[in-house]
């Protein structure tokens, strides 16, 4: 298993190198950042000087080489726009996105999964059918629409929850978190719920159809024949086998949540990293965009690794495949 983890991490280095070059070259091709950055009143000489200072006058491969040199020394460079170190900018914004994504994941798995399991065990019940209808709505309607509707209902008509921003935060080791304060949690509620709805519907349907299928299998029949209590049949015998595909989807969905957070952050003016990315692309702020891509690619590699480790824990058959 250790061997697998090391092999995976080495593979990810290659992925990261390729991706960094594609992003780097992509933004290079879109246009010259100087055109966006420079003041209208700037003289040609001033622009020339700034271009040289940022190294933008050099050929692509030289620029890339310099960037990578600094990256391996642990330096993500400085933003063209704010002149702040990119690492500082990302660290400022990342916690806001992370807490929103994690809480939304907890909501979707914590609510969607158990409801789906119950619905799958009693597929004929009115409750299960109703849930299926609602779940279609849940993932076919776009999440910005949900966000706007929530804002309309809970912030405008019945102003129970605050509409925008992160609210009060608490600093832990120099990082600001909202979920540790009451006010922060109130601010988190709507964005996290908006982000969670599609995923919750997906979890419900996966758990329901998975349970429905498994409950008809011979080994569940034998578990009943053995006289096991029904709770043990559902939780130990059925759910364990249903969890294998669900874990895969959860892994993929974490990626989807981070991508989806860009829209949600825009709706709720949530100062997260998604907004930073959009702003940086608009400004052709290459160091920020490339760093963002690298960080998130690495996150994906890690998530997939964790998913694979979960497989090994859940499905004994994969253990041998790995050793053999």
């Amino acid at each position: 298993m250790t061997e697998m983890i090391i092999r995976r991490l080495l593979q990810s280095v290659v992925t990261l190198l390729v991706l960094s070059f594609i992003t780097f070259a992509g933004i290079y091709l879109i246009g010259n950042p100087m055109e966006v950055l420079a003041d209208e009143s700037a003289t040609a000489a001033q622009i020339q000087a700034a271009t040289e200072r940022l190294g933008l006058d050099q050929p692509l491969w030289v620029q890339y080489w310099h960037y990578m040199e600094r990256l391996f020394a642990g330096d993500f460079g400085r933003s063209y726009v704010t002149s702040l170190p990119v690492s500082t900018m990302i660290l400022q914004r990342l916690p806001a996105t992370l807490e929103m994504t994690v809480i939304s994941l907890l909501i979707s798995v914590g609510i969607g999964l158990p409801l789906g399991v119950v619905a799958g065990v009693f597929p004929k019940s009115r409750w299960s059918r109703g849930g299926s209808v609602l779940s279609v709505l849940g993932f076919s309607l776009p999440n910005f629409w949900f966000g706007l509707m929530l804002l309309l209902c809970l912030a405008v008509w019945f102003p129970i929850l605050p509409a925008i921003g992160r609210g009060q935060t608490v600093e832990v080791n120099g990082v600001a978190w909202s979920f540790l304060t009451r006010d922060g949690l109130a601010h988190l509620a709507m964005p996290a719920l908006t982000l969670a709805i599609g995923n919750m519907a997906l979890m419900f349907r996966l758990a329901k159809s998975g349970m429905q299928e498994v409950m008809l299998l011979d080994y569940i029949k034998l578990a009943r024949i053995k006289g096991l209590p029904s709770r043990r049949i559902v939780v130990v015998h059925a759910l364990r086998n249903v969890m294998i595909p669900i874990i895969t989807i959860i892994g993929l969905e974490i990626g989807g949540l981070i991508a989806g957070s860009i829209i949600t952050e825009t709706v709720f003016a949530w100062p997260g990293i998604g907004k930073l990315l959009i702003d940086s692309i608009n400004m052709l702020d290459r160091p920020v965009v490339v760093a963002y891509m690298l960080i998130f690619t690495f996150t994906f590699v890690l998530i997939n690794l964790i998913v694979d480790i979960c497989y090994i824990v859940l499905d004994p058959r994969t253990r041998e495949a790995l050793q053999g």
Partner: peptide
Amino acid sequence: RLRGNRIAMIMQDPMMSLNPSL
């Protein structure tokens, strides 16, 4: 309480009747 205790059953296909993950 009676199932698996006073009355037991052996199913037809042993490849399917044991839980693969336990």
